[in-house]
Design a protein around this nucleic acid. Structure first.
Lengths: 200, 200
DNA sequence: GGATATATTGACACATTGTCAACAGATCTG
DNA sequence: CAGATCTGTTGACAATGTGTCAATATATCC
């Protein structure tokens, strides 16, 4: 709603980014079905058709927002202190849980699962994101040399479901403490690694 | 689309159920955003306003469909053979994975997660359902006497995220076998139980 | 300063949901 | 059996939101 006064005409990249930022703010704080393009346009101080000009359909814009929100930068293995794998995993999770605690709204809304037959294009982006997070974890802990990658990745992605679930219990339901989350994630990750390296 | 010829006038309960069944079929096989009320009405061989008459808004109908799809009947502990807890958990998971394999579409669409800011009313129903499934598992394995319920339930609900994730990897991505899923679920469940009973 | 390119917008067309008064089929009553 | 009554059902309308396109406004170039 807050129309920020910007020059009447901007270079495409800037205008696009400006609209995207307005969309991120709105989608982050409200159920995405309750946010319409008119609102986003108003927040960006721009006419509604411009959204379609830069992003195509509303869903395309939504997907761009998802990509931005879900993105996680890589962590180099040497940044993680500790000798044992369990110890280094604990440090990594501490970092991530710190990040989650810092902007809980994003993660809360992300952990809210959708229903049957969610939009396939949206679902694809979320799977992409799950895979990215899992790969980041594998890289940061250098897990590749512990188990074959084609077994490891899907198992860690699945384990990400437990991560989302426990974070939701922590931040939304408040039925788990942060320490509970850390503990259960470290322990189950160790278990999952055991299963992954179990050649059968 | 297939208009089944039914009497022009039905008792409310029957008409309501008929509409609900048509909605279930459509929501089950297609992304729910691509199904509109006109289609549901046509499939039920009925005029569109009747849907609102019986269910209120489209979302209310959708939520009713979710409740039906997600429902899982209880399993009595004595139905599960085996001495050790691990063994009985394995049997329970076998039963559930059988059920999942029998109607994969339902579970595939359910495991597809939604995005940020999913509809709060819909999210509430899904959380309700997650809690129901977790409670069923706790009851069937009689886990109550192993850990305090207020710690156990949230942890098992969170573990349900891993269950959804691994089932998705199995049925949709085909990166895990059914046996992988069974193994990782049994082992992580044991780990989670350990964390739950860990008084600290 | 005029011509050209393109960022921006107002107005329109279309789809979908939700509402309401009117219609129609069943049951009751005399 | 005819009329009254109740309620399941529907056609028509209003409201909201998305996507398109020709027209307009602003910057840049010669």
């Amino acid at each position: 709603m807050t129309a920020e006064p910007t020059p009447a005409r901007l270079p495409p990249e800037e205008r696009r980014e400006q609209i995207l930022q307005s969309a991120i703010r709105l989608f982050e704080e409200r159920p995405h079905t309750s946010v319409n393009t008119a609102e986003i346009a108003a927040a960006a101080g721009v006419a509604r058709p411009l959204i379609h000009h830069y992003f195509g359909t509303r869903r395309d814009l939504y997907i761009e927002v998802l990509r931005r929100l879900y993105f996680i930068p890589p962590i180099e293995p040497e940044e993680l202190p500790g000798d044992s794998l369990r110890e280094r995993a604990g440090h990594l999770l501490d970092r991530w849980l710190d990040g989650v605690a810092r902007r809980p709204n994003i993660w809360l809304t992300f952990t809210a699962s959708g229903g049957p037959g969610a939009d396939p294009a949206v679902a694809a982006v979320l799977r992409e994101a799950d895979a990215l997070v899992a790969q980041r974890l594998i890289d940061a802990l250098a897990l590749d040399d512990q188990a074959p990658a084609d077994r490891l990745l899907p198992l860690v992605i699945a384990w990400g479901g437990l991560a989302k679930g426990s974070i939701h219990q922590w931040l939304a339901e408040k039925t788990l403490t942060r320490d509970d989350v850390r503990t259960v994630l470290v322990e189950t990750l160790m278990t999952v690694l055991g299963v992954a390296s179990d050649q059968r």
